[in-house]
Simulated assay, not measured.
Amino acid sequence: IKVNKIDGIEVNFSGSLPTLIVNNIDAPGHVAAVTGTLSRSGFNIANMQLYRNKRGGTAVMIVEMDQKMSPELIKEVENLKGVLRVTYV
């Protein structure tokens, strides 16, 4: 499978690894908040890609990881400031 568009924003990933898709407001600090949360939980990021529809608009963060995430950790990411939606594949 090759995903090439999410909510009208062009992306590029396969979902072959555990993948976290974070829709967020395009503003400083959101990438650090998500990656910091994953790091504190011992997760290693295999690949990460960032996309946005326009400066200050909506952004999509694709984070492919080496291991699976727990529902609790997904909820923690969902509750971060500026996060609009989280999808886990």
Rank of each mutant, 00 (worst) to 15 (best):
I1Y: 11
K2L: 13
V3T: 10
V3P: 03
N4D: 12
K5W: 15
K5G: 14
I6G: 02
I6R: 01
G8P: 08
E10P: 11
F13C: 00
G15T: 14
G15D: 14
G15W: 12
S16N: 06
S16T: 03
P18F: 08
P18A: 07
T19S: 05
L20G: 00
V22A: 02
V22M: 06
V22N: 02
I25A: 07
G29T: 06
A33S: 09
A33E: 02
A33V: 02
T37F: 02
S39F: 13
R40N: 06
R40G: 04
S41I: 04
G42W: 05
F43T: 01
N44H: 06
N44R: 10
A46T: 05
A46P: 01
N47I: 11
M48C: 08
R52C: 08
N53I: 07
R55P: 07
G56W: 15
G57M: 05
G57E: 05
T58K: 12
V60K: 00
V63M: 06
V63S: 04
E64M: 06
D66G: 15
Q67E: 15
M69Y: 04
S70E: 13
P71T: 01
P71R: 06
P71F: 03
L73I: 11
L73R: 11
I74T: 09
V77S: 00
V77Q: 01
E78P: 12
L80G: 07
K81E: 11
V83Q: 04
T87A: 15
T87G: 14
Y88E: 03
V89A: 10
V89Y: 03
